[in-house]
Design a protein around this nucleic acid. Structure first.
Lengths: 305, 305
DNA sequence: AGAATAGTGTCTATGAGACATTATTAT
DNA sequence: ATAATAATGTCTCATAGACACTATTCT
C-alpha cells in the first residue's frame, strides 16, 4: 500500500509505541529527505565521462559528488526532478543548440539508495537516475554548475570492482551501512557518500543495456557512422571489437540503424575510405542482441540481487 | 549529491523563495513520505499469484493493494524495510518451517514511484520491491496479514497491457500523473493507487530475468525436477515450451542445476517415468541464456526508458 | 491396454567469430 | 608509396528449434 493506516496494532512485529506513531503519521516524526541524483554519462575523446560537482560544504567538503538535489514535494515527479537537476547542473538552460542536445538525452531510473547512515546528517533516500547524452559542452560558469565538470570514468576510484559484469543486471542492492558515516579518506578521485557505488551500478546498467537495446545511439549525434557506433561500444565495454564482424552484425539487426544514403565528408583521421552515415532506427530491442565478448570467469559465482 | 546546500541562488532555475527554503531544509517544509511496497510472487497450482491486502480505509477502501508500509526513518535501509513488510504482511514470523521458507525468498528492488498525485493525501514516494518465493502458505489470520491473500495474476486488471515484453527491461518509468487522484472505478480486480502499474513492471522484470538468470529456481523448493522448472517458465511466460528441447537446454547451461542423483518417488500424475531431481547450481548468470520464443511483433516500436 | 510423460537422438537453419580481401583515403 | 580503414566475403563452430523415438509409469 502507499500510505497505510494500520487498523490494528502489530502483535507479530514488536515495535515501540513511538515507532508505531511514526508509522502512523510521518509528519509527526520521520525526518526523511528524498533526493534525486543523476549519473550523467557522455563520450569525450573516445572515453566515458561522468558529470560530477565539487562539494563546497561538509560533509565530504572538497569531494566530488553526483549532481542532484531535493525532490520538490507535491510539485514534481521523480522523472521531472531528474531532468530538472540535470538541466540545472549542466547549466544547459539558455542555449538553444544546447537545448536541442538536451532533448536527445536519455533518462532512466537506476535505483534507490536508502541506508540510514549513507548521509551523516539525516536519513536521506536518494533516487538515482542514469542519463546518456552525446558529447555535451562543459558546464557553464556563473551558474549552479560552476563547480560541475566532466570526469573520465577511468580516473575514478570505484571501490576496486574489476571491469566486467559484476552482478546479474536488474536492481542495485540497497547500501547497507558500509561503515562510512562521514568523510573519511577523501582523495580527489574518491566520491562523496555512496556515490561510487551508485556510479558503479550505473556503469553496470549501461554496459548491460548496450547488449540488447539501441541505447548506444544516444551517445552519438543524430547522424553517425558504424565505426562511430563501434567506438561507443568499445568505450563502454572497454573491449576492442572486430570491425568487420561488428559492421555486419549491426546492419543485420532489424531496426537498429537506418541508412541516410550519404557518407562522411572526409575519410578517417589516419586514412581509409569515407564511411556511410546512419541514424537510429525504430527498434526498441535489439534482436538478435549484440553480446559482449564472453569472459568465462564472469559466469560463475556472481551474486544475484 | 545527497543533501545539498546550494551555495548560491539559482538564477537559471526560476524558483520562489519558499521553494528555495524547502530545498534547503526539508524538515521545515516538505511533506514527503517514503514507503516500501512489495510485489510478492509465488506459484500456486501452476499459476502465478501475487500477494495483496485489502484496504480497510479510504482512499481506495475495499480495493486490493500491494503490501507495504512506511520506511522507519533512521532505523532501517530499504532492503530491510522490504523484508520486514513482507514478513509482517504474510504473517510469516512465528512458524519455523515458514521461516525456513522465508529464507529462500529472493528480494530485489524493482523501482521507485513518486508522482506527486499518486496518493491523494500527500506526496508519497514508494520504493517497490520484487519478491519471488516457493509456494507459501496462506497468510495467517489474527495478524496484520488478516486481509492479505494470494491472487492469481491472470485475474487482475493491469490496464490492458498485452502479454509480452512491453518495454526494454531496466527501469520503470516514473508515473506521471495519470489523472487518477483518488478512488475511481474500483472493481474487485482493480488495484489501488498506481499499484497496477507497479505490478505490471514487476511482471515485466520477472519475465525478463528468467531468460538470463537462474531465478526460476527461487519459485521451487530446494529439490526439483526439470519438468517442475519448465512449469515455472511456462507459468511466468504464459507460453508452452517444448519439453525435450527445454530439458536438454537447461542441462547444457553450466551451473544452472546440479543433479542430486535421486529421482521422484512417483511418476507424473497422468503417467510417465519418475523424473530425476536437481537443485540450484552456483551460476549467477545463465550462459547461454534461455531465450523466450520470439514474437516478431514485439521487437519493433517498443519504447525505451 | 492405453495414455501420458521423461529423457535422448537427429537434422536443419541461423548466428557468432576468426580470418581474408578489396577499395578508398590521409600522410 | 605506405599505412590505415570501410566494407564485404568465406569458413567453421555452437546453438535453437523441429521432430522422432524409446522407456517408464499411471489409470
Amino acid at each position: 500500500m502507499t500510505a497505510d493506516e494500520p487498523s490494528t496494532p502489530r502483535p507479530a512485529a514488536p515495535t515501540s509505541e513511538q515507532e508505531w506513531l511514526a508509522a502512523y503519521d510521518p509528519r509527526a516524526y520521520a525526518p526523511i529527505a528524498v533526493t534525486v541524483d543523476v549519473v550523467a554519462l557522455t563520450l569525450r575523446h573516445g572515453g566515458l565521462h561522468v558529470l560530477l560537482v565539487e562539494r563546497g560544504a561538509p560533509p565530504y567538503q572538497g569531494c566530488w559528488a553526483l549532481p542532484g538535489g531535493f525532490l520538490r514535494a507535491g510539485q514534481e515527479g521523480l522523472d521531472e526532478a531528474a531532468a530538472r537537476e540535470l538541466a540545472e547542473e549542466t547549466g544547459l538552460l539558455g542555449g538553444s543548440e544546447v537545448e536541442a542536445a538536451l532533448c536527445r538525452v536519455h533518462l532512466e531510473q537506476l535505483g534507490t539508495y536508502g541506508a540510514p547512515d549513507r548521509d551523516p546528517r539525516m536519513h536521506v533516500v536518494s533516487v538515482a537516475y542514469l542519463a546518456f547524452a552525446p558529447d555535451l559542452p562543459d558546464p557553464q560558469a556563473g551558474t549552479d554548475a560552476a563547480a560541475a565538470a566532466w570526469h573520465p570514468v577511468a580516473d575514478l576510484d570505484l571501490g576496486h570492482r574489476p571491469h566486467g559484469r559484476p552482478r546479474a543486471a536488474g536492481a542495485p542492492a540497497d547500501t547497507h551501512g558500509g561503515g562510512v558515516g562521514g568523510p573519511t579518506g577523501q582523495s580527489s578521485r574518491t566520491l562523496a557518500f555512496d556515490h561510487a557505488r551508485i556510479l558503479a551500478d550505473g556503469l553496470d546498467r549501461v554496459r548491460a543495456k548496450l547488449e540488447y537495446s539501441p541505447l548506444a545511439t544516444a551517445f552519438l549525434p543524430h547522424d553517425f557512422t558504424i565505426p562511430d557506433l563501434r567506438a561507443v561500444y568499445e568505450a563502454v565495454w572497454d573491449e576492442k571489437l572486430h570491425p568487420g564482424n561488428f559492421h555486419r552484425k549491426v546492419l543485420s539487426v532489424p531496426g537498429f540503424v537506418e541508412s541516410t544514403g550519404a557518407t562522411t565528408a572526409r575519410g578517417g583521421a589516419r586514412g581509409g575510405p569515407r564511411a556511410r552515415t546512419y541514424h537510429a532506427g525504430d527498434a526498441g530491442l535489439l534482436h538478435p542482441a549484440l553480446l559482449r565478448p564472453t569472459r568465462e570467469s564472469e559466469i560463475r559465482g556472481d551474486e544475484i540481487h
